[in-house]
Amino acid sequence: MVTGKSSKVGARIAATILFVFSLVWLFPIFWTLLQSLRPYGDVLKHGSVSWPQHLNLQNYWTALVQSEMWKFFINSVEVAVPAVFITLFLASMVAFVVSRYSFKFNIALLMIFTAGNLLPPQLIFIPIFRLYLNIWVPGWINENNVLYDTQLGLVLINVAVQVGFATFVLSNYLKTIPKEISESALVDGASVWQHYYRVMLPLLRPALASLGVLMTTWIYNDFFWSVVLLKTGAKRPITAALSNLQGEFFTDYNLLAAGAVLAFIPTLVVFFTLRKQFVAGLTIGSTKG
């Protein structure tokens, strides 16, 4: 049969294209990994494209311990973890109300949240920057007593921006949960808070997990806000700190490669262990009919 043959040839062409593309895709990451395992002296002597004479983890040790990169990982955790938890908590509350009670403002509210998430960050950063310079915080948060140059400020802006997307996704998800569950909760005389906290929140768990994985990656990878809202280099999360390390490691590119690999290892681990959740998080919002 003609169609059978041509589709077999088609499948072979498709497989070849996919194979070539995926090698091209992986190469830069593989190359950086290789650089990070080579001592700088080796590269200096033989050139960066040469058969590696020595491969070891020395660069990783130097970057993590001597250059104290581990401190920046702690900064990242201090920003991403609270930001993700607060975002999911706030977004689930709004999503609960707009999807379980019919108020006139529901759609307008969802539109505000959805559109707010799509605004370019540059549009909001000028007043935010000024505002942060004028908000007082206690000395134990920032010795200069302003919100600017604090991780708290970074958490706040990440929450405010991400809550838009999270509300949109969670309210879509809640639409797929049968109304009968709410009806029976109301018949049982549950208060609004019990309805939210006892009935809906547990049902939202899979969506919260997916969204949490996705948002942790996003906030961990955030660069713009850390660059504009933090002044002190030592307070920067790892993603933004890398560009400083770039200057510091200027003479030792292999050390920088180790730094870059260390910075993306957490996201790779998350991706490989929670790939389902990661993909689900990205597509919950996008494939609703």
Binding site: W25, L26, P28, I29, W31, T32, T217, Y220, N221, D222, F223, T239, A240, L242, S243, Q246, L256, A257, A260, A263, F264, T267, L268, V270, F271, R275, F278, V279
Partner: peptide, 14 residues
């Protein structure tokens, strides 16, 4: 999918 989980800052270095 891999490039997507890398931050743009890391992407630039890579």
């Amino acid at each position: 999918y891999l490039p997507m989980v890398l931050s743009l800052a890391v992407t630039g270095i890579v």
